[in-house]
Design a binder for these strands. Structure first.
Lengths: 400, 400
DNA sequence: TGCCTTTGTCAAGTATCTGGACGAACTCCC
DNA sequence: GGGAGTTCGTCCAGATACTTGACAAAGGCA
């Protein structure tokens, strides 16, 4: 029963200002006249907005560009270091934090192991990380972005539940804002990563699904250039959809979730089984040597052409592809990007995903879908955490 | 590489005007002051907009309401018959057309069988239907809305392909607009139906998936109060996602699509098989008598407690539920509405759908999801075709 | 009856986009 | 080298639409 909100002049201005900023961001160096052509705004308006951006230190003139038959244009560029963002990735075993500029260029990274840490103690670790990075860049600090597993109410910045940290309904954004005095954005890690791909991979898609396949499986759904959260902030939580009728128990309590068959855990479980059955195989010897298999071991076995490993990896990929076929059917997105540790496994896995997704989705739609690995632009969760801040504060991924 | 478009004063005005109109639509009779409170607009702005609405004949004052301690408010209401819409449902066997008012109240309905009709001939039938309904209501005609199966480019009103009518890349909106001189909207039938449920069922959901389960299966995806089309206008085309590994051939050419196991065709195919195997069963006798089974026969057998029929219907429902679990995982919508001939089968089917969807979706998400049959508000495709026009012309389902 | 509240409108003010005009700066061609 | 034409950036007047404050009309309450 919520009623849509009214439109105001400020919103109009904010939208158009974001448009100009984005033109500089994506197409700079660029002249005012070109920004006007690109955005449809008048030169007058663009000039006005640019004036504000220059006053704010966000943009600068860098001299004349080539003439096209008239007065040479004054080229403008965004000042990448004009603002900074502190981005955090609250991983399962380690909290990582980075100080980044407007382009997602990392200035400094620090991290703390958090095994055994939980509750208020974990919040204190977050504070420490921020304090350490904030020293010396308080003036330019645009905001703090947090990427974390679990269900996150992005509107209020409340973490609904993060099992391993024993956080429940923690208003992390409020807590951090109160202590550090800058805007704070909190987002689910997979969703943040999706925004990072949109903002930093040099290629804009209005609609995009980015699937993180690691120990867990989660997707970020970007529709119309904006993150889609769903009614309960659970959009993209595909890891716990049941896909295997006689599957194993999942950490969520049910059986046969996608995670139990397609995550890194699933692959390692199965390769370990195989290694135990065949102690003389390469994987068997690797297991005996180290006591535990890792995805690197799987990669090595895969590269060596081990058939059992290949079958396991392909099976995992096919399960994911099956899920993606459903995603394509429901959303008809033109681009699905895969990332996370499992996505690093290479073409054996990727081809399995693609093949299964294409075989199962309506040809008319699937023909256009690009399923690809994320470009190696860095830690996507960290980048995403900063992308969320950039989007919220500067409107760097405006839709429409 | 398309750049978002600029914001203007006119858009601001249009948005706010739509807000006022919607307040009248959803909450009327209502005073200007209450509209202001509801929308957040100032009384001044609301008064201004209402003035225009009254001038346009869209609203009227209907006297004073009860005072709450001050001057009694002047109540306003929408004039339901102020405008009319011609809605068309281009069904597989019959084209149906209706003249409706702003509330979706049907003034007149006509139809033409179109078996064997295709190409330009079919377009002529559309023209005829419109001409017949338009006589006498030219002045109040707001627009024409068309609901049709197949892939439709809703932005341009072009039908990409409608197999049975032999239409390919037909710019139907342009054709109808040229001939009849009013705005035309064309939409996929399932998507149109979703908008009808949103607009006419008396209950607003920002996010909603409406699945039409009949001879075909398709969904309309409503996100943020607006229809989501997908990059290739194929969002919601879940009927041709492969769900059955050793399934039968589908009319789309592949094997095991959702339609081959969950549509009315699938149910009738299976019950007919069963009837042939057991000629003495109720269904067997029914088949022998009429030569062909219908969903009504299935309904009768179901009501009579026939176990074979029940199993077939439940199996069909479970396949759909499985797909819905995926939808819930991807979108986390709070409400999924089912309609179409199969959805009329009753609780045996609905319970199977619900049970399977809930069992397979993440508990946290699935717990909140309501899966329900559409309220019996009329022909959803016709209503939807008109809803698309009302949305486009009056902004009756504004988001944000 | 007098005071308070609420409604609807008016007038002045403000923010922001629009469109025309103009000087500055550059190219091209004679 | 100079004039014509083009393009850029800005200025200014004008238009649009929201905001704010004020006020009369209309009602309740004591």
């Amino acid at each position: 029963m919520t009623f849509p909100s009214k439109a105001t002049h400020q919103q109009t201005r904010a939208h158009n200002a974001a448009l100009v900023l984005r033109a500089l961001y994506d197409f700079g160096p660029i002249s005012r006249a070109d920004v006007a052509r690109l955005s449809g705004l008048t030169r007058t308006t663009v000039g006005d907005v640019v004036g504000v951006l220059i006053d704010d230190g966000l943009a600068r003139e860098i001299g004349r560009g080539p003439s096209t038959g008239g007065k040479a244009p004054i080229l403008l560029e965004l000042i990448d270091g004009a603002r900074h963002v502190i981005a955090l990735d609250l991983g399962e075993f380690v909290f990582r934090a980075a100080l980044m500029d407007l382009r997602g260029q990392v200035q400094r990274t620090i991290e703390r192991p958090v095994t055994g840490v939980s509750g208020d103690e974990a919040v204190d670790v977050v504070h420490e990380l921020i304090d350490e990075l904030a020293t010396g860049s308080r003036e330019t600090l645009l905001g703090i972005g947090v990427g974390t597993p679990g269900i996150v109410d992005a509107a209020t910045g409340t973490i609904r539940s993060a099992v391993n940290l024993n956080w429940q309904d923690l208003p992390l954004a409020d807590i951090l804002r109160a202590r550090h005095g800058v805007p704070v954005q909190v987002a689910n890690d997979s969703r943040a990563a999706a925004l990072a791909i949109e903002l930093f991979s040099g290629r804009r898609s209005t609609n995009l699904v980015a699937v993180k396949v690691g120990r867990g499986i989660g997707a970020g759904v970007l529709l119309g250039g904006e993150l889609f959260h769903g009614d309960g902030f659970g959009a993209g939580e595909i890891g716990h959809v049941v896909v295997d009728d006689d599957g194993a128990e999942c950490r969520c309590g049910r059986f046969g979730c996608l995670e139990t068959v397609a995550s890194s855990r699933a692959i390692l479980l199965r390769t370990t089984e195989a290694a135990n059955e065949q102690p003389d195989s390469p994987l068997g010897r690797r297991l005996a040597a180290s006591g535990e298999l890792t995805l690197d071991d799987v990669q090595v076995a895969l590269d060596a052409g081990d058939e059992t490993t290949r079958r396991i990896v392909v099976a995992a990929g096919r399960f994911l592809g099956r899920m993606l076929a459903g995603v394509i059917g429901v959303l008809d997105v033109e681009r699905i990007v895969l990332h996370g540790s499992v996505a690093e496994l290479g073409d054996v896995w990727l081809d399995a995903v693609r093949d299964e997704a294409h075989r199962r989705a309506l040809r008319l739609l699937a023909g256009d879908v690009v399923i690809e690995r994320a470009a190696p632009i860095g830690d996507l969760v960290l980048l995403g955490a900063s992308a969320v801040v950039l989007t919220a504060e500067l409107g760097l991924s405006v839709g429409r």
